[in-house]
Design a protein around this nucleic acid. Structure first.
Length: 577
RNA sequence: GCGCUCGUAGUUCAGCUGGAUAGAAUGCUUGCCUCCGAUGCAAGAGGUCAGGGGUUCGAGUCCCUUCGGGCGCGCCA
């Protein structure tokens, strides 16, 4: 029986209000703001009317009545304060149970039962640099991918490549005029980036360029061998470059089917829309009216008959449902596109697909620069690779300074530097906008990734010193038969720490429900802070082996939470740094 | 103009279905390594939870309204 169940039963048995059930009482239970006020509290204000008495008197009477009989072993005492009925758990017992429960890792429940979660994330554009604006979708999606797998779902990562559109005609036009395979070979994505910028500059004074570009676009669609060859080369260069970044970030994809794949599959969608009588002509274009739902119409076909973003998204969603039979399909895309997703989800629903309700737009805030939005076209952007490199370099300096004898400095600096950047992107609510700042992204003090990794390494270090084989969760011989004594480390900090560990799994579930990795980030931050204070307050390797065993078990539980949490946030739980 | 969204210490942010004295981190000031990793720990200072109404025994949290920032609103994605 869990504590809420136990406590609500205790109260129910002593409170005689016919219209209030044990379940109602359970619902009312909450957690006091600080440990000094107990572990669970029942506000008695609601009973005031029924009992025609003041909340203070009710709480006092309940406390007395409950305390008169013997309390269950889990509960230490019951106290009434200002109309609240406060319950105090037995700390050593609870700490022991929790630490034992987390000894072999974070205990898991299978909530997913293998159901498929499609996650459309990162979804980069061909021929463009991976810049800071792309980090959120990649980090959030990559983290959700791991979170859902952890919970027993089957994640399917989809990189819906931006590989379709008129910009590729422009790029080929620019390539033919100003570039060559030699230059591509040498400068790769940088060359493509420069061509893109140059094209837009020159097109302003030379409108003929757009005509040539349009020709090339048409040639790509008609599968003209030369156009396709050049275009495929652009794609190859992009994927090579960005693959390196994905490796560094630790994100994976199960599919790279992009827009071009779906561009010639929109016919079926249009036909279906016509059959359902949803399509309407308007100013030469074909639209689905959504007035009834307080939304502007959803554009399906341009006046020249070409498909649009929404059309291809409809085709893509149908394809994904057929291919993966997903339980949910997530789109990790910035909030600018809120309306687009609302519209396209609604259109799918109107088409009669009941699974439209399983599509979720996971929207997040945007990253901008101090002087405005990032833009590839104008060349105002900050490349992620540069940020990662700078972070790694700075970390390397810190390690060399503080821990000159460290092993594998390069490897460690890579894990910590990259981790710091990822963490900065995952630690806040995803909806918040971020103004990029070098100072902020390169600050490693306080609530940062390095702090978490440091704390994990610190745990490993103590455990190792004590002879704990933490990879196999085995205590050393000399502690095996000793009874752990938790009684000597039950202050409020240690207590809060253990309670944060106790509910760690629930937080992971909450993070999944809200598609919000920052919930996990906040929790492991609390655990790390609590542990660092614990570490300072107590000697882990106490001479008294019973005490030592208890503290090692707490350390192991902390380590396991940090490891799992870090991994779910794409950070590496390194063992020394 | 309409719609969505955000507004909490100087700054960046937490704050579970409404609950007790609003919490961290970072600036800043100042302590702590003869002891398990000082990338650590602690103390001080810093708040009209944007303003105003309302619902409630109780509002940072819910409702209305004003102000301010961001985003979106037909042939881009």
């Amino acid at each position: 029986m869990d504590h809420k169940e136990l406590i609500s039963k205790l109260v129910f048995d002593n409170l005689n209000i016919p219209e209030i059930s044990q379940d109602d009482i359970k619902q009312c239970l909450n957690i006091p703001p600080e440990p000094a006020l107990g572990d669970f509290a029942l506000p008695c204000f609601k009973f005031s009317k029924a009992l025609k008495n003041s909340p203070v008197n009710i709480a006092n009477a309940l406390a007395e009545k409950i305390s008169r009989k013997a309390l269950p072993a889990e509960i230490d005492k019951v106290q009434a304060v200002n109309g609240y009925l406060n319950f105090y758990l037995n700390r050593p017992k609870f700490m022991q149970e929790t630490a034992e429960r987390f000894k072999n890792g974070v205990p898991k429940q299978d909530i997913g039962h293998g159901r498929v979660i499609c996650i459309d994330y990162s979804s980069i554009n061909i021929a463009k640099h991976f810049h800071m604006g792309h980090l959120s979708t990649t980090a959030i999606g990559g983290s959700l991918y791991r979170i859902f797998n952890f919970l027993g779902y089957k994640s399917v990562g989809i990189n819906h490549l931006g590989d379709y559109g008129t910009q590729f005609g422009k790029l080929i036009c620019a390539y033919k005029m100003w570039s060559s395979e030699e230059k591509l070979e040498k400068d790769g994505l940088n060359e493509l980036h420069e061509l893109y910028i140059r094209y837009h500059q020159e097109a302003e004074t030379n409108p003929q360029l757009d005509d040539i570009a349009r020709e090339w676009s048409k040639k790509i669609e008609q599968k003209d061998p030369e156009a396709v060859k050049i275009y495929e080369r652009f794609k190859e260069i992009t994927l090579q470059n960005i693959g390196k970044i994905y490796d560094r970030l630790g994100v994976v994809f199960d599919s790279y089917l992009g827009e071009s794949f779906f561009a010639d599959k929109v016919g079926g969608v249009v036909k279906l829309l016509e059959e359902k009588n949803l399509l309407e002509e308007s100013d030469g274009a074909k639209v689905v009216r959504l007035d009834e739902y307080d939304m502007p119409p959803c554009l399906i076909l341009r006046s020249d008959g070409a498909s649009l973003y929404a059309t291809r998204d409809l085709a893509t969603a149908i394809y994904r449902k057929q291919t993966y039979d997903f339980y949910k399909c997530l789109y990790v895309v910035a909030y600018q596109q809120n309306l687009h997703f609302k519209q396209f989800f609604k259109v799918l629903e109107l088409m009669g697909f009941d699974w439209a309700k399983d599509l979720v737009h996971v929207s997040y805030g945007m990253v901008s620069m101090e002087d405005g939005a990032m833009s590839t076209r104008s060349g105002r952007l900050i490349k992620l690779a540069d940020v990662l490199d700078k972070a790694v370099e700075k970390i390397k300096g810190i390690i060399k300074e503080k821990n000159p004898d460290a092993q594998n400095i390069d490897e460690t600096a890579e894990a910590v530097g990259v981790g710091a950047v990822i963490f900065s992107s995952l630690c806040n609510s995803k909806i918040k906008d971020i103004v990029f700042s070098w100072d902020r992204v390169l600050n490693f003090d306080g609530e940062t990734g390095p702090y978490l990794q440091y704390t994990h390494a610190r745990c490993c270090s103590v455990l190792k010193k004590a002879g704990v084989d933490y990879n196999n969760f085995a205590l050393p011989q000399n502690l095996q038969d000793i009874e752990a004594d938790f009684g000597s480390s039950i202050d409020d900090n240690s207590w809060t720490l253990i309670k944060n560990i106790d509910t760690f799994f629930d937080q992971i579930v909450l993070a999944a429900q809200n598609y919000e990795p920052s919930i996990i980030a906040n929790r492991i931050m609390d655990i790390a802070q609590g542990y660092n204070k614990f570490y300072f307050d107590y000697k882990i390797l106490d001479d008294n082996l019973s005490v030592q065993k208890a503290r090692l078990l707490i350390t192991l539980a902390v380590k396991n939470c940090l490891k799992t949490g870090l991994e779910l946030l794409l950070l590496k739980p390194i063992e020394q740094m």
